[in-house]
């Protein structure tokens, strides 16, 4: 998959992983792995970017005697997912056109 396309896709995937309820790093990776390849060193910059972009917020909480950071989606993050879904619908039309070989 194209690196840039995957980068954008991963951001939306991370947002989708925390859409229903807040989540933490390991769980996000575990939830996404069946669908898309993502490593720890890939996730960190994505979380940082999404947080600085106001698409998610983070809070640190003690868990089993250690710290764990939980991420929660914001309205901006939800809007980003919706925007992606709309774009995908348009891509689907284009994809069908390409698949048909350009014929009407």
């Amino acid at each position: 998959m194209d690196a840039q396309l995957k980068k954008g896709l991963l951001e939306v995937c991370v947002l989708a992983a925390i859409r229903e309820e807040e989540s933490y790093g390991y769980k996000i990776i575990s939830d996404l792995t069946p669908y898309i390849e993502i490593s720890e060193s890939t996730l960190y910059p994505i979380l940082r970017r999404l947080e600085s972009g106001g698409m998610l917020t983070a809070r640190t909480e003690a868990y089993n005697g250690r710290l764990r950071k939980y991420f929660r989606i914001t309205q901006l993050g939800t809007a980003k997912i919706n925007e992606f879904v709309e774009a995908m619908e348009q891509f689907k039309v284009i994809s069908d056109f390409i698949t048909r070989g350009g014929g009407v």
Partner: peptide, 29 residues
């Protein structure tokens, strides 16, 4: 960094439940 094929999947029943926020602490990277 290739992910290991042996990476375990988190099963829903084994996943530690995410606690409800008690005190929301915003952090900015």
């Amino acid at each position: 960094v290739e992910p290991s094929p042996t990476q375990p999947q988190v099963e829903k029943q084994n996943t530690p439940q995410v606690k409800k926020p008690q005190a929301v602490k915003e952090t900015v990277i």
